[in-house]
Design a protein around this nucleic acid. Structure first.
Length: 270
DNA sequence: ATTGGGACCTGCTCGC
DNA sequence: TGCGAGCAGGTCCCAA
């Protein structure tokens, strides 16, 4: 599912494709997934893209922005010219530029696109926790949020208001990397574990970006050119239940935590 | 207040 | 073989 590395990959791709282009038209096929007035961006030029948590932000030269959330099955597919495959049956919103078209596909209709002005955008994004690559994402900060709760550490990692950008895949992988059991209460983590976890989160997210995101078996994430990411080839626990741990040979377990599939090595992760 | 669970959707898998 | 139940997961919303 699109988490930080997937959205970051899309951002980098679209940064090359659409910066400097003008919006010609916005066509909304699924009304509930779109809000705002298309006329507020029609004819304006894209000046840059940003990512905040799992959101993609497209900024225009009139201080308006598109705020995009792909949720689980959203895709952004860019085509410079007419393409017989697009729009497809899951295309929900079509954004036409001078030279090319951006298709927002979303099988399950959970994702959305909103048009916001600067104030609305800032208001909307301020509630999210620190970005894992920022200096605010410190051991001291993690200590302060972990000590406040006895929720399982994995549940805390998925809370966007505490840490921005982690989803189920990278939370599982980071906990394996840090050798921490996902069910361990957050407040039970010691300094050493918190330090390992912080490093592991940064590491797995960077790996995710390096391999351009995860397009696992049941994942619909693709890059804007329609090709797949490759991080799924580097999963060590996610969807590896019943397989052998690559570090110790024990069998990877799958449990349910907060309604989410949770994967870990019972021997490596204590 | 915090926390847990259902709702939102659709397509796929699994069991009867 | 056919069909329905269950599942998948990011986030919001409501209830205990």
């Amino acid at each position: 599912m699109p988490e930080l590395p997937e959205v970051e990959t899309i951002k980098r791709y679209l940064n090359k494709a659409i910066v400097g282009q003008k919006i010609a038209e916005v066509e909304v096929l699924s009304k509930k997934q779109f809000s705002g007035r298309a006329k507020d961006i029609r004819g304006t030029k894209v000046i840059g893209l940003e990512r905040r948590a799992k959101h993609l932000i497209v900024n225009f030269d009139n201080a308006n922005s598109l705020l995009i959330h792909l949720k689980m099955t959203g895709q952004l597919v860019w085509t410079p010219r007419a393409n017989a495959d697009l729009p497809g049956k899951t295309t929900r919103i079509i954004i036409r530029f001078d030279k090319g078209t951006l298709f927002f596909n979303d099988m399950r209709k959970f994702g959305w696109i909103r048009i916001l002005n600067k104030d609305q955008l800032d208001q909307e994004l301020k509630r999210y926790g620190p970005e894992p690559f920022s200096k605010d994402f410190s051991i001291k900060y993690l200590q302060s949020i972990f000590q406040k709760t006895s929720k399982p550490i994995k549940t805390v990692l998925l809370d966007q208001e505490k840490i921005a950008g982690l989803g189920n895949i990278y939370a599982n992988e980071a906990l394996f990397e840090a050798k921490i059991n996902p069910r361990k209460p957050a407040k039970a983590l010691n300094q050493k574990e918190i330090s390992r976890l912080k490093q592991a989160i940064v590491y797995v997210l960077k790996q995710g970006i390096k391999y351009e995101g995860s397009s696992a078996a049941d994942e619909v994430y693709i890059k804007p050119d329609g090709s797949a990411g490759r991080y799924q080839q580097h999963f060590l626990v996610y969807q590896k239940q019943k397989q052998k741990c690559q570090k110790c040979g024990a069998t990877i377990k799958r449990v349910n935590l907060g309604g989410r599939g949770t994967f870990f090595c019972p021997k490596c992760q204590v």
